[in-house]
Computed example of a mutant assay.
Amino acid sequence: MNSFSTVFLAFAMSTDAFAAAVGKGMALRRPRFSEALRTGIIFGVIEALTPLAGWALGTLAAEFVAEWDHWIAFCLLVFLGLVMLTKGIRNGHEEPPPVARHSFWLLAATGFATSIDAMAVGVSLAFVDNNILITAAAIGCATLLMVTLGVMLGRIIGHVAGRWAEALGGIALIGIGSAILYEHLTH
């Protein structure tokens, strides 16, 4: 795999995480850059580890990962989205208390849900001439960048969306999960 392919793959793997980060940024009250960077680091580390795990599993789990990755991502993202949507609707009639930061576990669960496809890519990379460490590092760095920017973009969108920002973020996560499922079922 050449350098261009590696960079392209890295940014392609981070698009779901970017969209989820926009939703996370919308749910926060004026997130600071440090919170966006923290979110980017969590997502980036997870996104870098999953292709390594997939590569290590290789042929042992290839069928399972390829067969179920979209269902796992769909269920996790819809669950997290429904939680955010429910909280947003409940708080939509009143001014919600400011949320300064998301918990590590919520970010890790969202990061994992958006990186399951990277695990499947890692499995496929076990069968081609590729330096998995460089590829995983590129995916992690691209995700860190995209998620950090996504949270800051979510800050702007969240300010415009006002009280309904968390509900809109939940809808975004449900949409991402549905898109992942639809993409895999139609191909």
Rank of each mutant, 00 (worst) to 15 (best):
residue 77 L to Q: 04
residue 86 T to Q: 09
residue 25 G to I: 00
residue 130 N to L: 02
residue 39 T to W: 04
residue 27 A to E: 10
residue 128 V to T: 13
residue 156 I to T: 14
residue 89 I to S: 01
residue 114 T to F: 02
residue 21 A to P: 09
residue 176 I to Y: 05
residue 128 V to E: 11
residue 143 T to H: 05
residue 14 S to Q: 09
residue 161 A to E: 04
residue 184 H to R: 12
residue 86 T to L: 10
residue 104 F to H: 04
residue 98 P to M: 10
residue 37 L to W: 11
residue 9 L to Q: 08
residue 135 T to L: 07
residue 161 A to F: 09
residue 145 L to P: 00
residue 89 I to Y: 06
residue 85 L to V: 10
residue 75 C to G: 12
residue 156 I to A: 14
residue 92 G to M: 06
residue 46 I to H: 04
residue 51 P to R: 04
residue 30 R to N: 15
residue 107 L to A: 12
residue 55 W to S: 07
residue 55 W to M: 05
residue 69 D to L: 08
residue 63 E to K: 14
residue 102 H to N: 08
residue 17 A to C: 11
residue 55 W to R: 00
residue 123 V to W: 05
residue 163 R to H: 06
residue 158 G to C: 05
residue 130 N to T: 14
residue 13 M to F: 02
residue 127 F to G: 09
residue 148 T to I: 10
residue 134 I to P: 01
residue 130 N to Y: 00
residue 178 S to Y: 13
residue 54 G to K: 06
residue 8 F to Y: 09
residue 68 W to E: 02
residue 4 F to H: 03
residue 70 H to M: 07
residue 155 R to F: 05
residue 132 I to P: 01
residue 118 A to F: 00
residue 28 L to R: 07
residue 177 G to W: 03
residue 17 A to N: 12
residue 38 R to N: 05
residue 100 A to V: 12
residue 31 P to H: 10
residue 30 R to Q: 13
residue 117 D to T: 10
residue 160 V to G: 02
residue 86 T to P: 00
residue 53 A to H: 04
residue 111 G to I: 01
residue 19 A to Y: 09
residue 113 A to P: 07
residue 175 G to L: 10
residue 131 N to I: 03
residue 1 M to A: 12
residue 36 A to F: 07
residue 135 T to G: 01
residue 185 L to D: 09
residue 178 S to W: 08
residue 5 S to F: 08
residue 18 F to L: 15
residue 105 W to H: 06
residue 79 F to N: 02
residue 142 A to M: 04
residue 33 F to L: 15
residue 37 L to N: 00
residue 170 G to K: 07
residue 177 G to P: 07
residue 153 L to R: 01
residue 34 S to W: 11
residue 129 D to L: 00
residue 31 P to E: 13
residue 87 K to H: 10
residue 63 E to Y: 10
residue 116 I to D: 04
residue 78 V to I: 13
residue 184 H to F: 08
residue 80 L to A: 08
residue 85 L to Q: 02
residue 140 G to F: 05
residue 103 S to T: 14
residue 138 A to Q: 00
residue 135 T to V: 13
residue 51 P to S: 06
residue 75 C to P: 00
residue 182 Y to E: 12
residue 54 G to V: 08
residue 101 R to S: 14
residue 20 A to L: 01
residue 128 V to C: 00
residue 54 G to N: 06
residue 169 G to T: 07
residue 134 I to W: 11
residue 30 R to G: 14
residue 172 A to F: 10
residue 67 E to T: 15
residue 9 L to W: 03
residue 102 H to Y: 01
residue 183 E to C: 02
residue 127 F to Y: 12
residue 100 A to R: 15
residue 61 A to L: 15
residue 9 L to N: 05
residue 40 G to D: 09
residue 98 P to K: 14
residue 80 L to N: 02
residue 165 A to Q: 05
residue 125 L to C: 01
residue 101 R to W: 03
residue 77 L to G: 03
residue 128 V to R: 06
residue 104 F to S: 01
residue 142 A to C: 08
residue 68 W to V: 08
residue 9 L to R: 06
residue 95 E to I: 13
residue 61 A to Q: 05
residue 134 I to S: 11
residue 46 I to L: 15
residue 58 G to P: 02
residue 134 I to T: 14
residue 8 F to M: 13
residue 187 H to Y: 13
residue 139 I to K: 03
residue 49 L to M: 14
residue 119 M to Q: 01
residue 66 A to D: 11
residue 51 P to W: 11
residue 43 F to L: 07
residue 77 L to R: 03
residue 80 L to G: 02
residue 79 F to I: 12
residue 50 T to W: 11
residue 39 T to V: 09
residue 88 G to T: 08
residue 169 G to C: 08
residue 97 P to L: 06
residue 81 G to L: 05
